[in-house]
Each structure stands twice: as structure tokens, then as C-alpha cells.
Simulated scan of single mutants.
Amino acid sequence: MKRTLATLAVAVAPLVLLAAPADAHRHDHGRPATYLLTGDDGGSKFEGIGADERRGVFYVSEVTGGEIHRGTADRAQTTEWLPGDGADGRFTARGITTDAAGRVYVAGGPNGIGTGRPDLWVYSARGELLAALRAPGENVFLNDVAIGPDGAAYFTNSNAPEVYRVALRHGDWGVTRWADATATIEQRPGFNLGGIVVTADRSALVVAQGNAGLLWRFDLRTRAVTPVATGGAALTDADGLVRQGSRLTVVRNFARMLATLRLTADGRSARLVSQVATDPGRVLTTAKELRGRVLFVDSKFDEAVASGPYEVVTDPLAR
């Protein structure tokens, strides 16, 4: 759809950090509005993104093959940082994040189901493999990951209402089933738990259940799981979550919408602020903030065989 300047200003008012005009190459200290990913000849699809604020770099995971791409905030072209197609046992990759030391955590989605391959990986900032781990269970689909206030990485499982914890202890990396919410969260057909963020007061994790359109609060001290009260906000197809202070942005992939909510510091409730349509030519999966801007992954999930250009964008809105 076409947007006048007046309409645009109203539509994105709650999303000050989320949207930049598509022609804003010269208006943001020379940083590009679009980042180019290197795809495969047979077509590539992408999903996760992790941002290292200190180093000014970001990482994007490739579903088709499991390659990990790396870019910098000030350059439009990214590079393939880690190979896929079986490297370190990785044939696909999903959620990805970084910790304060610059280590990179990669969720493997279905990589280990029925194969015995790793479900997740941890790399140093230099790309050295630190750990390739199997999660407990035989049907684990690790979807997304966030770093908790304890420095551990917390991974969501889309095939069961579970959260896994990965941490370094006494020099060894280990993974445990940290929370099992089977008694609380109804497992439904399709993708369940996905996007994950830490609350502002660092007391809990907020997790999206995309097929149900719900948000859940996982208490970091007690591991109790409760629904986030959203007043019935439409959140189906919730995928990636981005928290900026009290602003929670929900990337609704195939719904092609961005929902913005005001989340309480403890994550117990959220109030819908706006729903804004995203570019109908893209299926955005998730996003991360880097150097004052939010970067969105164009997955190509709507294409049977994906074709380029493959992009990470700073302007997610419909035009």
C-alpha cells in the first residue's frame, strides 16, 4: 500500500527505533538500510539473527544448509562466517545470539531429530567451536535463544513446552532441560514456543507461542510458568521478540505484521500499542537491535525455491 508522510508518521510513532525510510542510506551516519546475504545457487532461506553491540557485528543463520553469516553495522555486504552442509554436524540453523564475551550460540531446529547430530553449538567470537551439544530428549526443535542475567543461554523448544539452559561450568559446556511447562502450556499443531527475551527487571523470560498467539512468562528463580496478560492482543504467527525498555515488538511472520506492546518490567502483563503491516513481499522472522537500529531478517519462507536478493532490512513496513 502507499503511505503518505502523514500516515507514516502516525503508523510508526510507537516504533521510533524500528523503522527507517527505505532511501535512508544518507540519513543514518552512512549506514546501509539493507544488508545483503550471500545465498546458495540452489536457493537459501534465513531465520535467526544475533547482534553483538560491543563489536558492532551481527550474525544471521541459514535454514538451508546451516551456514552462519556475519555482517557489520556500517557495511552493506555480509560474508559467510561459518560453513554449513555438515560442518560441525550442522545442516540447518535457526535462532542465534551472542553473550557479553562475544560468544555465538546457535539453535539447530530439527538438526538432531532422528539423526543423533547436535541440537546446538557455541562458538567463540573468532569462530572457534567451543561446544556442539545434544539436548535431552529425542524430538527437540530448538528455535530461539536469549542470554539470561546469569550469563547462561536459554533455548526454546518448538516441539514441546520446554526451555533448555546452556552454560559453562568447571570448564565444560552442558545443556539441561531447565523448565518443563507441559502441565501449563497446551502443545498445539505447528510451531509452538519460539521467540524469547529477558524482562527489564531480569526476573523472567518472556516466550512467544506462535501458533496460539500467546506470550508466556518463565520465572528465572522459581521456574514457574504463567501467561502474560495481553488483553487478547492478536499475536498469532508470533516469531521473533525484541524488547527495548518497556517496548516489546512481536514479529508476526506469515501474518506480516509487527505488534508493539508495553510490557511491564516483570513481564506479567503487556498492553497493545499498535499493529503495523510489514512489507507484503517479505516474510520477516525475527529481529535484533544493533547500534540504535533494529535489523529484520527476510526469510524467503514464502518461496518454494528461494531466489535473491537475500536481505536483512531496517525498514520492515509495507509500502
Rank of each mutant, 00 (worst) to 15 (best):
A146N: 09
T182L: 11
T199I: 04
R243Y: 06
G231K: 09
P227E: 12
E67F: 10
D28Q: 11
G267K: 01
I68G: 03
V283T: 14
G190R: 08
Y164R: 03
D28F: 09
L193P: 01
L82P: 01
R247H: 12
E311W: 07
W173N: 06
Q209R: 06
T184R: 13
L36A: 11
T176E: 15
H69K: 10
L82Q: 12
A22W: 04
A6P: 02
A100C: 13
A265H: 09
V251P: 00
V206I: 12
Y154T: 03
G171L: 10
V283L: 13
L8K: 00
D28I: 09
P110L: 09
F91E: 14
R217V: 02
V297L: 05
E162N: 15
A20F: 04
R3D: 00
L37D: 00
R252D: 05
R223C: 11
I196A: 07
L130Y: 06
Y154E: 03
T182V: 14
V305K: 15
A304V: 14
A287R: 00
P280Y: 11
G56K: 08
P309L: 10
T176Y: 03
P14F: 01
N111P: 04
T184G: 08
F58T: 00
V140A: 08
S246K: 10
A93L: 13
A22I: 07
R202D: 15
V104T: 04
T64A: 11
A19L: 06
L36K: 07
R256N: 14
R247M: 13
G127Q: 03
G148C: 06
V145T: 06
G194E: 12
R282Q: 13
E62W: 03
A153T: 02
G108W: 00
D88L: 10
P110A: 10
R268M: 11
I96C: 12
L18W: 02
M1D: 12
G56I: 08
I196R: 05
G39Q: 02
E53Y: 03
A318V: 05
L214K: 14
A318H: 01
L248K: 00
W216E: 00
G292V: 06
G281V: 06
P149L: 08
R223F: 08
R293C: 07
V198N: 04
E67W: 07
F58V: 03
Y164P: 02
E289T: 13
N253H: 10
V140C: 09
R319I: 05
T264A: 14
Q187I: 14
F46L: 09
P32N: 06
Q187P: 08
V60L: 05
